[in-house]
């Protein structure tokens, strides 16, 4: 066992997959000699050669479309976006070409597009966004957003081995803040399966990515009051693990959906609808959404703090629901 960060876990996953399977290659801006803006591919070019570590012009459109084109020849490209905010520059490729490819003309597209998303680092409105829901709304894609180093590595390996286009939203706040011991031998984490991050009896917090840790802090505070939170880490946003959502609500009878994405059209609404469809009779209280404000992500620390969901929000809402 060795202790590795969330970022190193992702590096290891891609490195090991490239060692295992010569069809895997990476492409993106500054991924070569420089090793990427966050150093996810540092050293890769020397190990695997410039043919398999392709520096691209500044064009997310070209990264997405060329990765897709290469996948049509049976390769398994991993495209990097320096920040997931820039995925909007490849939106047309992703939703029009990649997502519809197998359904429309029987052309599977085994590729991964990955990069850092999320706030908390004063990245401002163009380096902090959580654009996952544009893609959760697009059939044909798979969307992943891990919270732990172990999941980041295991899900990245699954994403690379998957025969479909996978969007992999890494959380930049977690890159070097989260560390854990990982198995030395090869392992994967199944796409489409949520994980109970913390067991509890009284209330479920359904969440993902960095908000798992906000929920965890809240759980520790509430534990002292005798309130046990169960934290369900979704890990995959498309396809959603409906069974896990139903199971946790049936167990605790109360649910908070917590995410860093903005509220309107965020996945909390979808999850509330799933609970309504599958576990309505189990509910003892209304479903509560705790999310970022419906506003762009602000730059200055006091503004960003106000914008993001906080531990105290979860504590307050949990107490209220328990009294409902």
């Amino acid at each position: 066992m060795a202790t590795v960060t969330y970022l190193e876990a992702i590096r290891q996953a891609i490195w090991e997959e490239m060692e295992r399977d010569s069809r895997v290659f990476v492409m993106g801006e500054d991924v070569g000699v420089y090793g990427g803006a966050f150093k996810a591919t540092e050293g890769f070019i020397h190990k695997f050669g410039k043919e398999r570590v392709v520096d691209t012009p500044i064009s997310e459109m070209a990264i997405a479309s060329a990765a897709y084109g290469a996948s049509l020849t049976g390769l398994r490209p991993v495209g990097e976006f320096q920040f997931m905010d820039f995925i909007s520059s490849a939106h047309s490729q992703i939703v029009q070409i990649l997502a519809k490819s197998n359904w429309r003309w029987g052309a599977p597209a085994p590729l991964v597009l990955r990069g850092p998303s999320g706030g908390g680092v004063s990245g401002g409105p163009f380096h902090s966004q959580n654009p996952e829901m544009f893609y959760v709304h697009t059939p044909g894609l798979k969307v992943i957003a891990p919270a732990t180093a172990r999941d980041a590595k295991g899900l990245m390996k699954s994403a690379i081995r998957d025969n479909n286009p996978v969007l992999f939203f890494e959380h930049k706040f977690l890159y070097r803040r989260v560390k854990e011991e990982l198995p030395l031998k090869d392992y994967t984490v199944e796409i489409g399966k949520a994980r109970v991050h913390r067991e509890g009896r009284h209330l479920s917090v359904i969440t993902y990515a960095s908000m798992v840790y906000v929920a965890q802090e809240a759980a520790e505070i509430l534990q002292k009051e005798g309130i046990e939170l169960e934290i369900l880490d979704l890990r995959t946003l498309l396809p959603l693990d409906r069974d896990a959502i139903r199971a946790t609500v049936e167990k605790t009878n109360r649910a908070i959906v917590l995410h860093e994405d903005t509220k309107t059209g965020g996945i909390a609404g979808e999850i509330a609808a799933i609970i309504n469809e599958e576990a309505f009779d189990s509910l003892d209280a209304p479903i509560v959404r705790i999310t970022a404000m419906d506003a762009p992500v602000p730059f200055s620390p006091p503004l960003e703090k106000a914008f993001l969901p906080k531990v105290e929000d979860v504590v307050r809402e949990a107490r209220r629901l328990l009294k409902y």
Binding site: V54, A66, Y68, G69
Partner: peptide
């Protein structure tokens, strides 16, 4: 760009 990727 897709054709470029095929050639790549």
């Amino acid at each position: 760009g897709v054709l470029a990727g095929v050639a790549l």
